[in-house]
Amino acid sequence: MPHKKGDPMDMQQTSRTQSPQIAATSETAEMALIMRLSGEAFGLPVPMVNEIIDPIQITRVPNASAFAPGLINVRGAVVPLLDLRHRLRMAPAAPGATARIVVVETTIKDTPTRLAFLADAVEEVIDVELGKLEPVPKLGAPWPDTYVLGVLRHTKGLVVLLNASTLFQPEPSPTANA
């Protein structure tokens, strides 16, 4: 049975209680969930995150695209499991002991859609000031620009803030080849 994972959710909880003050200080502040894929830290807007669950049985969908290779059961709902590594042009890797499934809700083709992806680890929730985002360095990053909002300096190093509105679209973004 999937269950909510303790640490990240607790952190999310504490962060949420602080949010009114943050909202007061800056209009462009946002909270981001930090997770890791192949060692890199990525951030996603917290409001879209539904839940974080332990890895469960994945049903392979024959002949499906490499971006959406499977389906999982999230509390009685059939939810597609996406491979973000594939979309971000990172080498495939098997999930390790700290791997978690992140369930998010976003709008796909005008329909609110729940979907999930595997992360190597889910670490914490941080406050992000969108004004302080830096552009992604042109060289040295495999991921297409279109899926990334920018890079953020954080105590633990660089965090890549993902662009949720392009990242989860069923079809790869036409500019992703650039």
Partner: peptide, 27 residues
């Protein structure tokens, strides 16, 4: 029958998905 979402809806060969007694998804 649960319909396949936007990621798998166009896929040929499947009419939908369902959840089995053991909690896993079957096509």
């Amino acid at each position: 029958i649960k319909s396949l979402g936007p990621y798998h809806g166009g896929l040929e060969g499947f009419a939908g998905a369902t959840i089995l007694g053991n909690g896993s998804v079957a096509l």
